[in-house]
Computed example of a mutant assay.
Amino acid sequence: MHQVPPTFWVDGAAIRKRRMQKGMSTSDLARVTGASVSYINKIELGSRDQMGPQLYVALRTALQATDDDLLTHEDPHERK
Score class of each variant (00 low, 15 high):
M1P: 07
H2E: 01
H2C: 00
H2G: 00
Q3P: 03
Q3S: 13
V4C: 05
P5L: 08
P5W: 14
P6K: 15
P6L: 11
T7Q: 15
F8H: 11
F8E: 08
W9I: 10
W9H: 11
V10C: 07
D11G: 07
A13Q: 14
I15C: 05
I15Y: 00
I15D: 04
I15Q: 03
R16P: 02
R16A: 14
K17M: 11
K17N: 12
K17G: 08
R18K: 06
M20H: 05
M20Q: 07
Q21R: 10
Q21P: 06
G23Q: 12
G23F: 13
S25C: 11
S27K: 14
A30E: 15
A30Q: 05
R31N: 13
R31G: 04
R31F: 05
T33L: 01
G34H: 02
G34E: 04
A35P: 01
S36F: 05
S36M: 01
S36N: 05
S38F: 03
S38C: 10
Y39V: 02
Y39E: 07
Y39W: 08
I40T: 04
N41R: 10
N41Q: 13
N41G: 11
K42I: 03
I43L: 11
I43P: 09
E44H: 06
L45V: 15
G46T: 09
G46R: 11
S47W: 14
R48F: 09
D49T: 13
D49F: 09
Q50C: 06
G52E: 06
P53T: 12
Q54D: 09
Q54Y: 03
Q54E: 15
Y56A: 06
V57T: 02
V57R: 02
V57H: 00
A58N: 01
L59S: 01
L59C: 02
R60Q: 11
A62S: 13
L63W: 00
L63E: 04
D67Y: 08
D68V: 01
D69L: 03
D69P: 05
L70K: 00
L71T: 10
T72F: 08
T72W: 04
T72M: 15
E74G: 12
E74S: 08
D75S: 06
D75A: 08
P76V: 08
P76E: 05
P76Q: 06
H77W: 08
E78L: 13
R79T: 04
